[in-house]
Design a protein around this nucleic acid. Structure first.
Lengths: 182, 182
DNA sequence: AAAAAGATATATCAAATAGATATATAAAGG
DNA sequence: CCTTTATATATCTATTTGATATATCTTTTT
């Protein structure tokens, strides 16, 4: 058996603030959450169906014109499930860095290949950092809103780690260019 | 269709250094690689079978006493596949931080809960950092070995990011304890 | 020396995730 | 008017995760 489905908690967390459609949920996940969690239609829609059966959320079908859409709303029971999860001790934090995997096995190719791979990574991080900084600055304009504090803290996590990445990139490139590599 | 199977590259990378059994591969992944990639028997064994069919690796069955074991060896074609992958531009780096997910939705519970969750994370990172530092120090004793340079760079990535995490933990806890939270 | 515990070794299964794709309507732009 | 983009739901396959089953060999405890 695989562990408990985490997408459920992402959905409950989002629905605890506002009613949303599956499509809306995907958009929210692709936004601020994307730097530390991912979601796809392939697990969002099945999870919504399941959770409705379990009574954690309720659905509300509406049709605007010829277009049908289903909005979900969190129930008392769903809200409790979210709170229980927040209080659980064990967490699974896992990162899968293909860039590091390539570097680890970098010896199978020339050093130039590894340097280039680091440069590709570096550029991506620089872009991501820029986006996160803008997001963070906007949040800090209204830190009196309780939720903004939480969003700001997760953004700051990203900013701090991205900065560490960039520092490492410079160092790693230097090391690879030094001491007469093959 | 899901993207190309990444476990294949982990296996090829490991086999490029020495012949290994599936069990050995699991042990290697759980070691130095574990901080940036994971693997399980559930994907290692099927991948080995597949790759053998594809001619990327060859198998060698031996029986020591009544105990059977299969050792795998990388082929020329497997070695080429590894090098091709190293030279590919696109990479998928994804982190799934349940700790951050909980913090993002922290507003559904008291600030104490979030502070506690950060403390749990902090302790784990402190442990991991200690292990990585020891590993890194041992590598640096013999940096003249080409491969050690690569292993050292990946270890240093972990060390730098873990340090950034700890710095963030202190800051985040301070923020949550300040300004009269609920 | 026997029993228990732990390490070695392979394999498989269910649940969850990733990523792509299919379908159809609505809105916006040229 | 037509094309492109956004909205919205759904499904499928491949892959990964995590657990479990089985069996042998080795080391430690009694």
């Amino acid at each position: 058996m695989a562990r408990e489905r985490k997408i459920d908690m992402v959905i409950l967390g989002l629905l605890s603030h506002e009613d949303l459609t599956g499509y809306d949920i995907k958009k929210r996940i692709d936004g601020a959450i994307s730097s530390f969690w991912k979601g796809s239609f392939g697990n969002i829609y099945p999870a919504l169906k399941d959770m409705e059966k379990q009574g954690l959320i309720t659905k509300n079908d509406t049709s605007v014109g010829g277009r049908e859409k289903t909005t979900y709303h969190i129930t008392e029971s769903g809200s409790d499930a979210l709170k229980d999860w927040l209080k659980e001790e064990q967490v699974s934090n896992e990162l899968k860095y293909e860039t590091l995997l390539k570097l680890f096995f970098g010896g199978a190719e020339s050093r130039e290949v590894s340097v280039h791979n680091i440069e590709v990574f570096e550029e991506q991080i620089q872009k991501d950092l820029k986006v996160l900084k803008t997001y963070s600055e906007n949040l800090e304009k209204a830190l009196d809103i309780e939720d903004h504090l939480y969003y700001s803290l997760t953004a700051s996590f990203g900013i701090e780690t991205y900065k560490a990445y960039l520092k490492w990139c410079a160092k790693a490139k230097k090391m690879l260019k030094q001491r007469g590599g093959k």
